[in-house]
């Protein structure tokens, strides 16, 4: 799991035009794809004797109640009904904020735990030998599948609402963060360590002044990797446990309510939330590591 931090490529303003062109192509593909997919669905419904309130399959394609791919008008009305007013309990922006908050708290918890574990791993060889293989292996385990059970166990101790979701997000983000931190704590080269020694720095000073700062870029790199997984964790936790808000709760609700358009809208909000979270971590990274000379 060597995910060394990579320097961020310089931003180019010239990306705008190509990006617009690609977006245009996507829109051009979307329109016939939507018609084709929905018309097929409509034709099958009509053939099985459904009364859809429209004549031919093609006419029905843009007004299906449960479209395969929503039509532009459906998107527009779906967005409006789920976004206005933005801070109502049933609207997506508010619920995205809740989920985002859970995930961020989870990532903070994961960083703290990751730091503690990484310190232990770096300090004690026997601890490393006993646990590191299982920490690496645990990343290949579908821990998300355990999220509902974990939430139930936490509920037993009266932990409910916002916090268990954050714990599950932390639980999922924790291993990549810990392993990234181990790499980070070990990243100072012998030369730097020798320098600290010639300064007569105590082990604690070496740790606090050299190793911790050196590990920060690794922390942020693994946090960016872990952010999406942690977001998945908090959404799964919301779906599968008692929850009163959050994108996961909306997802569960609207999937029960047969509101396909709403599912698409929530997906787009979820995607946006993932992107914003990663961007936030990137921003934090730049603020925290500003002192580093740009390599």
């Amino acid at each position: 799991m060597t995910t060394a931090p990579t320097p961020r490529p310089a931003r180019r303003a010239s990306n705008v035009l190509p990006m617009l062109a690609v977006a245009l192509v996507a829109v051009l593909i979307y329109w016939p794809l939507m018609l084709w997919a929905n018309a097929g669905q409509a034709a099958r419904s009509l053939a099985s004797g459904a009364d859809l309130g429209c004549g031919t399959a093609l006419q029905c394609a843009t007004q299906l109640r449960n479209p395969v791919i929503p039509a532009p008008g459906q998107f527009a009305s779906g967005f409006q009904s789920l976004s206005v007013p933005p801070l109502a309990a049933t609207s997506a922006p508010y619920n995205a904020l809740v989920t985002g908050g859970e995930t961020l708290l989870g990532l903070a918890l994961a960083s703290l735990l990751g730091l503690i574990l990484a310190t232990l791993l770096v300090r004690s060889r026997s601890f490393e030998r006993a646990t590191l293989p299982w920490l690496v292996a645990s990343q290949t385990v579908p821990i998300v599948a355990l999220a509902p059970m974990l939430a139930v166990l936490l509920g037993q101790f009266g932990v409910q609402g916002f916090f268990p979701k954050a714990v599950i997000a932390a639980y999922i983000a924790f291993f990549p963060v810990a392993i990234g931190m181990v790499q980070g704590l070990r990243s100072p080269d012998p030369l730097q360590l020798d320098l600290m020694r010639t300064y007569r720095a105590s082990p604690a000073q070496t740790f606090g002044l050299l190793q911790i700062p050196a590990s920060l870029p690794y922390l942020f790199t693994s946090l960016k990797v872990a952010a999406t997984a942690a977001l998945v964790g908090s959404i799964v936790a919301e779906i599968s446990t008692i929850s009163f808000s959050g994108l996961g709760k909306m997802l569960a609700e609207n999937s029960r309510a047969s509101d396909t358009v709403a599912l698409w809208v929530i997906m787009i909000y979820g995607a946006a939330l993932g992107i914003v979270l990663v961007a936030l971590i990137g921003l934090l990274e730049r603020l925290v590591t500003r002192w580093r000379p740009s390599a």
Binding site: P148, V152, L153, G155, Q156, G158, Q160, E238, I239, S240, T241, I242, S243, F244, G248, K249, A252
Partner: peptide
């Protein structure tokens, strides 16, 4: 009155969450 998603109410009651 607690709503529920994918879980069985048994689990929340058995563990004391409800």
């Amino acid at each position: 009155l607690l709503p529920i998603g994918d879980q069985s109410p048994i689990q929340t009651v058995a563990t004391g969450a409800a």
